[in-house]
Amino acid sequence: MSTATTEETTQSHGADHPPFLAHHFDTPEQQNTAAKLGMWVFLGTEVLMFGGLFCAYSIFRHNHPAVFAFAAESYLNVKLGALNTIILITSSLTMAWGVRAAQLEQRKTLIICLILTLMGAAGFMVVKTIEYNAKWDEHVFVGFVNKYNGYNVDPYAQLPPAQPGPPTSELPIPPSPPFKQSAGDANAGSDVSKIQPRFNGPTGLAVPGAASEAAGIGNNDAQIEARYRSLSDQDQWRVSTFFSIYFLMTGLHGLHVLVGMGLISWLLYRSARGDFNSQWYTPVDLIGLYWHLVDLIWIFLFPLLYLIH
């Protein structure tokens, strides 16, 4: 097909070929179907990406169930997790309702639905922030800000003196991070019991354990410590791995929620401008699909992370 005929076709079809319909499509419906297939392929890659994290989760949980039970029951707040589940499901409903409103050209309903969805997303992030904040206060954040990290030899060393010596005598001593170790450090690699915890989390922010009590988990430090000491030596080493997995999974999911908030805000702007009609609502439809996927991932994350025995 030459350029001349393309131009001619465009011009001659000007009346019944609306501006939103690309001319390689016959009907708006065909265009919408094609766009949705593309979105579903993208969602498939999203499932694969999260699949890697679910794989890490499965292997660690299957091999070390006691670690997961200890960490989840001691530090994750089931009530906040359940609240977030309800919030996300509700925002999924308002999003689906929004798509319906866009299809039926109910602009006011669409805008209300998008605002409610955005509020749900923001509410989810607020609850998530409360949870992450509690982890920070309890020194179970990521890396060195986690008191169970291998470098912090005995996480309870600063509490009322428990058994002297580390619980990890049979295991190789972890190499100290180079930036904190002086050249002639007598402790290096010889006597584990003399190694001070590298980092016990932020000081002066909160009393350790206060957060979990305030958040209503009902565990106190003594209970957690007793349970921690009842783990096998090797399992004690693995507790921080749970938090790595927890923060990676919920963090990547939270990132998706933030991206979703940006996309929904953009939808809100465009629908307020009146860009969508019953023949062209593809952006609402596709972002709706994305938003439902975010909900879908959480539907699995909630029981897998919070409801562990």
Binding site: T33, L37, W40, V41, L296
Partner: peptide, 22 residues
């Protein structure tokens, strides 16, 4: 969620194929 909120029940089976493959 997939069948009703995401419309897959009324969609082209190709979309389901993408998801099922993943």
């Amino acid at each position: 969620v997939v069948l009703y909120f995401m419309h897959l029940r009324w969609d082209s089976p190709f979309n389901a194929l993408a998801l099922i493959t993943a």
